[in-house]
Amino acid sequence: MTKFRPCIDLHDGKVKQIVGGTLRDEGAGPKENFVSDRDPAWFSDLYRQSDLRGGHIIQLGAGNQEAARDALGAWPGGMQLGGGVNLRNAVEWIESGASQVIVTSWLFDQDGRFREDRLKELAREIGRERLVVDLSCRKTKSGWTVAMNRWQTLTSIDVTHATLDALAEWCAEYLIHAADVEGLCGGVDAELIDLLGAWGGVPMTYAGGVAHMDDLNVVAERSGGNIDVTVGSALDLFGGSGVRYEELLAWNERSKV
């Protein structure tokens, strides 16, 4: 059954909700929907108290490592960690308290070509069960194409059932942001959810566009319950008005039935 999984997005060391398509290496800063006055550990501890497992902490750029470690320390083994993960630091993040590490950009060269050797090497280093592959993507002429470098650069990989089959041998889960709708609170990408839900292999979490509780029903129904979902800018914890945290806890309780 579809469950809610929590998130903590870090930018410049603070918990934020950002419109995904506005992240850039240069130029004006990203469009921010929310900047919290609470530290990351507060959110992690809240999720611990609610026993919400399998959520993720994402570092959006540099300057977030201390904040990420604080969040992991508030709930050792309770959350996944992504953003800047590679072969050199994956073990360190797990030792810092990450249940699993999430990797995207490091699996590609600077031109966006997939490096299967890196995926296999990382899986062998930390164990397949500790590895989550992020296939966050943008809509393209070929369907949905994985985007790296904070969703700025399209890669050589499309999100297809063949791709999901091939990579699942080396990872325990997928995390998939629909980057074009991320942070917009305009509804989920139902066609992408159809594609992902029809696969039904390793567990996966969808993120992007959730505006109301009805969107969770869309994810659950169109995926056949095969996909979990996270909620960002619409959530009251992050300044939103469309979804209340207590509603999500109740949703998860119902999903156990």
Score class of each variant (00 low, 15 high):
residue 5 R to V: 10
residue 36 S to G: 10
residue 8 I to D: 12
residue 62 A to H: 13
residue 156 S to N: 00
residue 95 E to A: 10
residue 84 G to M: 03
residue 105 S to F: 00
residue 33 N to I: 13
residue 9 D to Y: 09
residue 10 L to R: 09
residue 84 G to S: 04
residue 161 H to Y: 11
residue 235 L to P: 00
residue 67 A to K: 11
residue 211 A to T: 03
residue 205 T to Q: 00
residue 217 N to M: 15
residue 136 S to L: 11
residue 145 T to A: 05
residue 252 N to A: 04
residue 140 T to V: 09
residue 231 V to T: 01
residue 75 W to A: 03
residue 182 E to C: 04
residue 138 R to K: 13
residue 164 L to I: 09
residue 253 E to Q: 11
residue 235 L to C: 00
residue 1 M to I: 15
residue 24 R to N: 14
residue 16 K to T: 12
residue 209 G to K: 01
residue 77 G to Y: 03
residue 46 L to P: 09
residue 20 G to K: 07
residue 27 G to V: 05
residue 34 F to P: 12
residue 188 V to P: 00
residue 43 F to L: 11
residue 236 D to K: 00
residue 40 P to I: 09
residue 66 E to C: 14
residue 129 E to H: 08
residue 23 L to T: 12
residue 34 F to C: 12
residue 177 H to C: 01
residue 10 L to Y: 07
residue 189 D to E: 01
residue 207 A to R: 05
residue 189 D to Y: 00
residue 143 G to Q: 07
residue 197 G to R: 06
residue 75 W to G: 05
residue 27 G to P: 08
residue 151 W to G: 00
residue 82 G to F: 00
residue 196 L to Y: 04
residue 211 A to M: 02
residue 108 F to V: 06
residue 164 L to E: 08
residue 138 R to S: 11
residue 142 S to C: 11
residue 195 L to E: 03
residue 63 G to I: 09
residue 61 G to T: 07
residue 70 D to A: 15
residue 200 G to N: 12
residue 234 A to N: 04
residue 241 S to P: 07
residue 152 Q to P: 03
residue 60 L to W: 09
residue 70 D to E: 15
residue 215 D to E: 03
residue 87 L to V: 13
residue 240 G to R: 00
residue 141 K to Y: 12
residue 118 R to T: 08
residue 14 K to G: 15
residue 220 A to P: 13
residue 141 K to S: 13
residue 101 V to N: 01
residue 32 E to T: 15
residue 216 L to C: 04
residue 29 G to M: 12
residue 133 V to E: 06
residue 191 E to G: 06
residue 92 E to N: 10
residue 195 L to D: 03
residue 244 R to V: 09
residue 213 M to D: 05
residue 254 R to C: 12
residue 179 A to M: 02
residue 226 N to D: 12
residue 21 G to H: 15
residue 24 R to G: 14
residue 123 A to Y: 11
residue 137 C to Y: 09
residue 48 R to C: 07
residue 151 W to I: 01
residue 200 G to S: 12
residue 250 A to T: 15
residue 36 S to E: 08
residue 164 L to Q: 07
residue 84 G to N: 04
residue 12 D to L: 14
residue 45 D to F: 15
residue 92 E to P: 10
residue 134 D to L: 03
residue 255 S to Y: 13
residue 59 Q to P: 08
residue 104 T to A: 02
residue 38 R to A: 12
residue 58 I to L: 05
residue 63 G to T: 08
residue 100 Q to H: 02
residue 213 M to Q: 06
residue 202 V to W: 05
residue 108 F to P: 06
residue 253 E to G: 10
residue 142 S to Q: 14
residue 58 I to E: 06
residue 104 T to V: 03
residue 92 E to Y: 07
residue 233 S to D: 06
residue 210 V to F: 05
residue 146 V to G: 01
residue 98 A to Y: 01
residue 117 D to L: 11
residue 189 D to W: 00
residue 139 K to W: 08
residue 106 W to G: 06
residue 135 L to H: 06
residue 37 D to V: 15
residue 96 S to K: 08
residue 40 P to L: 09
residue 131 L to Y: 02
residue 33 N to F: 14
residue 94 I to S: 04
